[in-house]
């Protein structure tokens, strides 16, 4: 499971960074989204991977840490998702405004001269 998760985070990050560096605003926003997914998974994995372990206390299991997973990264990831989502939406608005002003979806607001 560790290998699958770390590979997933790696692939998402790599694709995200690649797209972030591309010249089209649409690619940038997809890149940022992929990057934020990778980061969210990464935060989640920092609480160590556990299967079938809830992050909240069950009756009778109080004090037995082996039955629980770390709840803090789950709380953190929730916050990160909300903030990341809001920021992506905001970026989308700026992107559309830029498209409206310049008539192009190049990040610099004008096409590069062809060689």
């Amino acid at each position: 499971m560790e290998i699958i998760l770390s590979a997933a985070i790696g692939v998402l990050t790599a694709s995200g960074v690649y797209l972030l560096l591309r010249p089209r605003t649409y690619q940038v926003i997809i890149g940022l989204s992929l990057l934020s997914y990778a980061v969210n998974l990464f935060i989640f994995s920092m609480g160590r991977l556990r299967v079938n372990a809830p992050p909240i206390l069950e009756p009778g299991g109080v004090g037995d840490l082996s039955r629980y997973t770390d709840p803090v990264p789950q709380a953190l990831v929730l916050t990160a998702i909300v903030i990341g989502f809001a920021m992506t939406a905001l970026f989308l608005v700026v992107l559309l405004a830029s498209r409206g002003f310049t008539g192009t979806d190049h990040v610099d607001g004008r096409e590069q001269r062809s060689e």
Binding site: L32, S36, F101, V107
Partner: peptide, 16 residues
């Protein structure tokens, strides 16, 4: 808007 686009993008990456 152009400056804002760059500003938002770099700050989102920095937040990651």
């Amino acid at each position: 808007v152009k400056a804002g686009l760059h500003y938002v993008a770099i700050n989102l990456a920095a937040s990651s």
